[in-house]
Design a protein around this nucleic acid. Structure first.
Length: 875
DNA sequence: CGGATCGAC
DNA sequence: CTATGTCGATCCG
């Protein structure tokens, strides 16, 4: 039972204006040691007193009401269900049940290992002073876990320390020490790996193993291979520091005893006797699954002096529930027979099922469902009240179905970081905090080489109300600046929304999701490769700024006819190919490459290389003005392009503004250009559905054009982002040529590339912000892009361009696939996941929690540090 | 897609 | 004296 459910009980008490008093004091009940404890009512009363009236509690009540409303809605729905509908559903569901039953697989042996009160156990092991005391690990704000002694007082994981103190004034609260837990965890994992090299850790203190293979091999093992020795050192209780250690902590119902295992199912004294003639101080384990797991637990305890509980079952869901059965320091097995599974589930409360939490439990309870067999009985009804995914999951649960193998790490879907702190209410602090979060997140993203398209800002105000605001940009972000650019926008909107009141928050988080698919990554890789070569390998590259190794330049010329714009060509190519285009089978594949143009590209590129190598005068097509240029050197060509660009800049300024041309740094839109722009937009109108095809030339651009507003276009500044972006640069400049884009203004940015580092501060003026809710029309795909800033709009354009161009390139087989980092050309970015990373397991039953050990460690450590830094804001 | 919600540890 | 976390997934509109 968690503190949350204690809280729920309290709500009931409060809501029914219940009596207080009546506090049974029991202490001596089932507790041989005479250990003091509190009964449930008393616990609830104390929790209530501590919590009542707090903002937190108010919010809990509110959330509760929302759940109640959901339930009410569901009940109304239920009322409308006719007998006939139900019957039909019953038939359909039962058909599915038959299928599921047929596919039932009892052939695997899955083990779930769960360390008992892990953090607390480690702390007690390492500090004998704590041995007999009630302790919890965490802080005054939040506890991670407690030992079994403290649990008698109702002190549990996820309970704030200050409340725990009221429940148990003698409680010792030990601060978290993730490094230590990580070490111990590693020791345990080393053992587990021997039984299943592909075992699946779930956090620091849990793991799934598939021991099916091990069991087979083990049958042929000689006894000696199954013999393990008692570690006399650890059982006499001396650890490295020479401190006296108890072999186990034990404050539980189970009396402490010197036997190996205390639970009913594991080794007993006579059990040990039966193990036959044994070498002194050793024990031999059998070949059954139970024996294997006993062996594992034995070895864990010998090695770490910590106990673990375990479950053995034909699938992960059942194994997990089994490990809970004889906790602590026990194990349980469901034998691989259908009936055994069903017996196990029969009276099992649904809440015990992984994946069914507080809310689901309550909803099902409203339908009279508490146990798994009731869940099965109501399968028809559930199929009418819940989503497909939900009720099918319910069905799997009630049949005892789950994953029978440990799935490979899936791909991570998002990454985030968040922090709780004492109230922050000034915009300045909020922005700098936001930046800090972005920085941390960017670091983590970079570790895994991930870039995402959606940035989500999460805020929790001082009333514990949580808000999330998301914005998806069309080119992936990964650096601090990129993320912050989007996040600060979202934050600004929120600050504005409560103005003139300050935004009073106690938590802020930033998340990036919408990672590139493997497909998209490939394209990126290829594009990077083709456009970025490091060091001497410079093919057709030019140093953007001499100081920086930020080499980038146009590596692609577009084929003639040079008269048409890039977009015209694009459109033409598309039309040409439209016959072959199968309607978007999958995202990011919309564009069939134009063989002709890509062939042409390769040719041109070759010319470039030739130029480089032979210094023969060659003719190029300038990507800006589309004039043929003959030159002897790259320098000369570059100079031409520079001139071209700077010439463009002046005359190609475009801005469509509302009436507020006075907005600083936002030049007003010359009427003639405006007309041209609008014309352009209108010409391109079609009936194609916007959004269904990124690269569609066509889309409806009618809405709100008159309120459009452009600001400065600035390319993304991050080198990493820039690498694949050369095409975009070309295209952007082409856009300028087309007078579709506003001009960039800053003199620092004459060539359109931001050379300056972003500096601290929230008002970095590296780009202009469009008025909120601007709708810009992408000159590539002509679709309307709602945006609050130009950076995101630029990204969209980048993507549009990249999609078309990169895919052309991708078709060329001989494209190298290595990726070079400009900043460090030794490093190769690979899209692959490294070991120990998060993943999503799509199959039922096994859902891995988000973070690896090390991530958790660093994040939590950061979290506590940051609290201080934040508090310093207020002095 | 964006936002809220759920569940896990 | 105060004081209730952090992550990823999924569902719903």
């Amino acid at each position: 039972m968690s503190s949350r459910s204690a809280m729920d009980d309290m709500k009931k008490v409060a809501n029914s204006s219940c009596n207080d008093g009546l506090l049974l004091r029991m202490g001596l009940n089932d507790n041989k040691a005479g250990m003091q404890g509190l009964d449930k009512e008393k616990i609830n009363k104390i929790i209530m007193e501590a919590t009542k009236g707090s903002k937190f509690y108010e919010n809990e009540l509110k959330k509760d009401q929302q759940v109640n409303q959901r339930i009410e809605k569901m009940m109304q729905l239920k009322e409308k269900i006719t007998a006939q509908q139900l019957l039909k559903a019953q038939l359909q569901v039962d058909k599915l049940v038959m299928e599921l039953e047929q596919s039932r697989n009892l052939g695997s042996t899955i083990v779930h290992i769960d360390m008992d009160a892990f953090y607390a156990a480690v702390e007690m092991r390492d500090n004998p002073e704590l041995k007999e005391k009630p302790i919890a690990v965490g802080s005054m704000s939040m506890l991670s876990t407690s030992n079994y002694h403290a649990r008698r007082f109702g002190v549990r994981a996820a309970m704030p320390g200050f409340i725990a103190k009221r429940l148990c004034p003698h409680l010792t609260i030990v601060p978290l020490n993730f490094e230590k837990y990580g070490k111990v965890s590693k020791e345990v994992r080393e053992i587990l790996a021997e039984y299943d090299p592909n075992f699946m850790p779930m956090g620091l203190d849990e793991a799934y193993l598939n021991i099916t293979e091990h069991l087979e091999e083990r049958l042929n093992w000689p006894e000696d291979r199954r013999r393990f020795f008692f570690n006399t050192e650890s059982t006499t209780g001396v650890d490295e520091d020479g401190m006296n250690m108890p072999a186990k902590f034990n404050e539980d119902e189970v009396s402490s005893s010197p036997v190996l295992f205390e639970d009913n199912t594991s080794l007993m004294d006579d059990d040990l006797q039966q193990r036959g003639p044994s070498v002194e101080n050793s024990v031999v384990f059998g070949t059954s699954a139970e024996e294997v797991v006993k062996e594992i637990r034995f070895r864990i305890e010998q090695k770490t002096q910590l106990t673990a509980s375990a479950g053995i079952a034909p699938n992960t869901m059942l194994a997990k529930m089994c490990s809970d059965r004889n906790k602590p320091n026990g194990q349980y097995r469901i034998s691989p027979e259908r009936q055994a599974v069903l017996d196990f589930l029969k009276d099992l409360p649904i809440r015990k099922v992984p994946g069914i939490g507080k809310v689901t439990e309550k909803m099902l309870k409203a339908l009279g469902i508490v146990t798994c067999s009731e869940l099965y009985q109501q399968r028809a009804l559930l199929s009418l009240l819940f989503s497909e995914v939900s009720w099918r999951n319910f069905l799997d649960i009630s049949l005892g179905l789950g994953s029978t193998h440990l799935e490979k790490d899936g791909e991570r879907k998002s990454m985030s970081t968040e922090r709780t702190f004492s109230e922050i209410n000034t915009a300045e602090d909020q922005y700098s905090l936001c930046r800090e979060l972005c920085r941390d997140l960017a670091q983590e993203l970079q570790k895994e080489g991930l870039k995402g398209k959606t940035v989500t800002l999460k805020l929790k105000n001082v009333n514990f109300e949580v808000k999330t605001r998301a914005s998806t940009v069309l080119s992936s972000v990964s650096t601090e600046e990129e993320i912050f650019t989007v996040a600060k926008d979202l934050l600004g909107t929120e600050i504005d929304s409560v103005a003139p009141h300050p935004l009073r928050i106690r938590l802020m988080g930033v998340r990036v999701s919408g990672f590139l698919t493997e497909e998209e990554k490939k394209y990126q890789q290829k594009s990077i490769t083709s456009f970025l070569k490091s060091g001497k390998e410079i093919g057709f590259l030019r140093l953007q700024t001499s100081e920086k190794s930020n080499q980038e330049y146009f590596t692609k010329n577009l084929e003639a006819p040079h008269r048409g714009s890039f977009f015209d060509q694009k459109r033409a190519a598309r039309q040409l190919n439209s016959g072959n285009i199968s309607p978007n089978k999958s995202k990011g594949k919309q564009l069939i490459p134009d063989d002709k143009s890509s062939a042409n590209f390769v040719e041109e590129t070759k010319k470039v290389t030739d130029l480089q190598n032979s210094s023969v005068c060659t003719v190029f097509t300038c990507p800006v003005c589309f004039e043929k240029q003959s030159s002897n050197s790259l320098e000369e060509l570059n100079r031409h392009i520079d001139e071209c660009l700077s010439g463009m800049c002046l005359k190609d300024t475009v801005e469509i503004s509302k009436n507020d041309s006075s907005r600083e740094n936002t030049p007003s839109f010359p009427p003639q250009f405006k007309n041209e722009y609008v014309d352009k937009c209108q010409k391109n109108k079609t009936h194609q559905l916007a959004g269904t095809d990124q690269s569609a030339i066509i889309s409806d651009s009618s809405a709100n054009n008159s309120t459009e507003k452009f600001g400065q276009i600035i390319p993304d500044k991050s080198p990493r982002e820039r690498q694949p972006g050369n095409l975009s640069d070309i295209a952007r400049n082409m856009c300028m040529k087309q007078c579709l884009f506003p001009k960039r203004i800053s003199e620092d940015n004459e060539d359109g590339f931001d050379k300056t580092e972003h500096t601290e501060g929230t008002s970095s003026s590296c780009f202009f912000e469009a008025k909120e809710d601007s709708v810009l029309v992408c000159p590539v795909c002509n679709s309307e892009q709602k945006t609050t800033n130009l950076v995101s709009f630029n990204r969209h354009v980048d993507v549009c361009l990249n999609k078309g161009l990169i895919q052309e390139l991708a078709e060329k087989e001989d494209f190298p696939t290595k990726i070079y980092n400009v900043e460090n050309s030794n490093r190769v970015f690979s899209g692959g996941l490294s070991k120990g990373q998060q993943y999503t397991n799509p199959s039922q039953g096994t859902k891995r929690s988000g973070v690896t050990a090390s991530q958790s460690v660093s994040k939590k450590a950061k979290s506590s540090n940051s609290k201080h830094t934040i508090e310093m804001f207020f002095k």
